[in-house]
């Protein structure tokens, strides 16, 4: 258990907020069919590729 830090427990309201955020993340990850933890990196890759392609098409 060396890697698990102690977390203080929270109330239902706070829990529900976190669950809502988890669900939003899950929906977004499902669109791209990626793991939650990979989503920021994949979004950045898409953004970069879109920029590059737009630039390329702009030149044409």
């Amino acid at each position: 258990m060396e890697n698990v830090e102690e977390e203080k427990m929270i109330d239902k309201k706070e829990w529900n907020k976190l669950k809502k955020k988890q669900n939003i993340l899950r929906q977004a990850s499902a669109i791209l069919n990626v793991k939650d933890e990979d989503l920021p990196r994949i979004i950045e890759r898409f953004q970069n590729e879109i920029k590059e392609m737009e630039k390329k098409f702009g030149k044409l």
Binding site: V4, E5, E7, M9, I10, W15, L18, K19, K21, Q22, I24, L25, Q27, A28, I31, D36, E37, L39, P40, I43, E44, Q47
Partner: peptide, 27 residues
């Protein structure tokens, strides 16, 4: 469970920042 959810919260925060939108609009 709480630790996992807080990690998800962090990831979502990073995503909202990258996309420049509110949490609800992320999907």
């Amino acid at each position: 469970a709480l630790k996992q959810l807080k990690e998800k919260e962090k990831i979502l925060k990073e995503v909202t920042k990258k996309l420049g939108v509110k949490e609800d609009d992320v999907p």
